[in-house]
């Protein structure tokens, strides 16, 4: 990895609520190169907020601060909103966690994808339509021409996620932040969609931040993994070594998985240790701090 595509240091996200300040992300730093970086962690650990803050999509009462946040030579904190809009969508795209909420419910899904293309490319409507159909086929949607004309509530959960994915990939971004892009897909389709992402990373040199709950998937798909807990990175490791994780939190997550090969009576659930919040963290198998 020569020059990281995105490098973040000391990122903090806090929300000012009537009941006081909520610290959603508490000083994290990471780098994404032209690789697949997995981000795992339980619900509320700040994964989405990390992704959104890179795109400056956090609105008041949320507030983002970072010591450093540089994307391909652009200081994401310093540039103005016009320049940011140029980057957002075109160079960094984000597949949102909840496709049904992110899609316009009264507009055909095909038109929404075509619009994403037209915003960034000066092409005719006919060509945008053609591109859209290709893109839908690329994310393994059966019968793209039919799905083009469906409204969001008429597509199944998994189709919605792929529509969202097509919409974000169509402008060919350099960095893709995918927030649980496959949680509603069946395993075969999810594999095919991951293969597309894999190709984009290995062949076109795209960077990928892959946010997920699925530990098995992250372990087999990503290059590196960061594990978040309570707004902090508690462990980073090679994806292939995730199963040998050292941090008790990561171990607890792994233990709560049901198994296909043998029955487990009661699934073990996580018992959280208050010390994890600010205690030592694990970097590549070694305790730090």
């Amino acid at each position: 990895m020569s020059q990281p595509l995105l490098s973040v240091e000391g990122l903090e996200v806090r929300f000012h609520t009537p009941k006081g300040i909520v610290e959603a992300v508490r000083g994290i730093g990471f780098e994404v190169g032209r690789e697949k970086l997995g981000i795992v962690g339980e619900s509320g650990s700040g994964k989405t907020m990390t992704g959104r803050s890179v795109l400056r999509l956090i609105r008041p009462p949320g507030e983002v601060r970072a010591k450093r946040m540089v994307f391909d030579g652009n200081d994401l904190e310093a540039i103005d909103e016009v320049a940011m809009r140029e980057i957002r969508g075109r160079r960094i795209a984000m597949v949102m966690q909840d496709p049904k909420f992110s899609l316009n419910p009264v507009m055909k899904v095909g038109d929404q994808i075509a619009e994403a293309y037209l915003v960034h490319r000066k092409v005719g409507a006919e060509q945008a339509r053609k591109r859209t159909l290709d893109m839908l086929a690329a994310v393994k949607i059966r019968d793209p021409a039919r799905v083009y004309d469906l409204y969001p509530h008429e597509v199944s959960g998994g189709m919605g996620q792929r529509v969202m994915m097509a919409m974000m990939l169509i402008p060919e971004p350099d960095l893709l932040i995918a927030d649980e892009p496959t949680s509603a897909l069946d395993v075969t389709v999810s594999m095919q969609v991951l293969a597309i992402l894999d190709d984009l990373v290995t062949q076109r040199g795209m960077g990928l931040m892959f946010i997920s709950h699925d530990l098995n998937l992250v372990a087999s798909f990503c290059d590196r993994v960061i594990i978040m807990y309570a707004g902090r990175i508690v462990e980073t490791c090679k994806a292939s070594e995730l199963k040998q994780a050292k941090h008790p939190y990561t171990q607890g997550l792994l233990a709560s998985l049901p198994r296909i090969d043998r029955p487990v009576g009661e699934l073990s659930v996580l018992s959280r240790d208050p010390a994890w919040r600010d205690g030592p963290v694990v970097v590549d198998g070694k305790m730090v701090g």
């Binding site: 619900s43 949680s183 509603a184 530990l215 709560s256 049901p258 009661e266 699934l267 659930v269 996580l270």
Partner: peptide, 20 residues
Amino acid sequence: DEPTSSLDVSVQAEILNLLQ
């Protein structure tokens, strides 16, 4: 209908235990 697919693994374990 996919009662745990949008939940993280530790919560999934809790919900599955609850259902059982």
